[in-house]
Nucleic acid binder design. Structure first.
Lengths: 115, 115
DNA sequence: TGTTATTATCGTAATATTGCGATATATAAT
DNA sequence: ATTATATATCGCAATATTACGATAATAACA
């Protein structure tokens, strides 16, 4: 098989999983962190920074782009990447409320008093 | 290849990716949400709830367990699952600060004034 | 002990991901 | 147009994930 049965789950669950999949590789985590640190966005410094091949970095970038997190624009001669901050906030909210909601309910102390 | 080069990244990046990998499937997202909703933890209701086979659910549970999020104890006759709330808070913090840190820096408005 | 119900593990097939070299595309400068 | 540099895409091999049926292990009860 190997195919996730996404139709069994709701949109929110599928979106959260989709985004988590992008964060599920340390290279992409590192790329996001690196891009955010740069005043001027970057290009293929990521190759030097991470030690991965250029083709591999490009692939990771396109995964990040696929969920709407990456913006690229030319600044003089270089193509500079940049995180879409609006989308970032959206995802922060998505994950934030996910952790919050479950955290509030999980392992609530069992009342052994009246039963 | 197909092997992630984790040695190129730091522990925090690898842990975040490891956890994200667990959240990267809607079934596991749904399982976490379902478990947290139940007063009494659950057993194989997840099979009925999700429509996945029992073996598949068990696999997903073991992925959740692998990152320390699952506790199981016998309550009467049934094995009942429960989220480890201490670990949950830890991961909430991990993701929270990840989103926060990048959110603060990303796409900072370029100062075109003095340059 | 034997039965029933629940959960875990094994084996396997289908599909997805990771990584990279090679190559194509795109942009800026010559 | 040509060259140099940066980025994207293709094709492939290795590995990982997903799903499930079959089967084993576990626990409560008769």
């Amino acid at each position: 098989m190997g195919v996730s049965k996404t139709q069994l789950f709701n949109d929110r669950q599928n979106e959260l999983a989709e985004v988590a999949k992008v964060l599920a590789h340390p290279a992409r985590v590192a790329i996001l962190q690196y891009i955010s640190r740069q005043e001027e966005c970057i290009c293929n410094d990521l190759v030097a920074e991470t030690g991965l091949a250029q083709a591999t970095i490009s692939q990771h970038l396109s995964a990040i782009k696929k969920i709407g997190l990456l913006r690229g624009n030319f600044q003089g001669k270089n193509l500079c990447y940049c995180i879409d901050s609006e989308r970032w906030n959206e995802l922060q909210e998505l994950f934030g409320s996910f952790f919050q909601n479950i955290g509030q309910q999980c392992c609530a102390p069992v009342q052994t008093t009246s039963e």
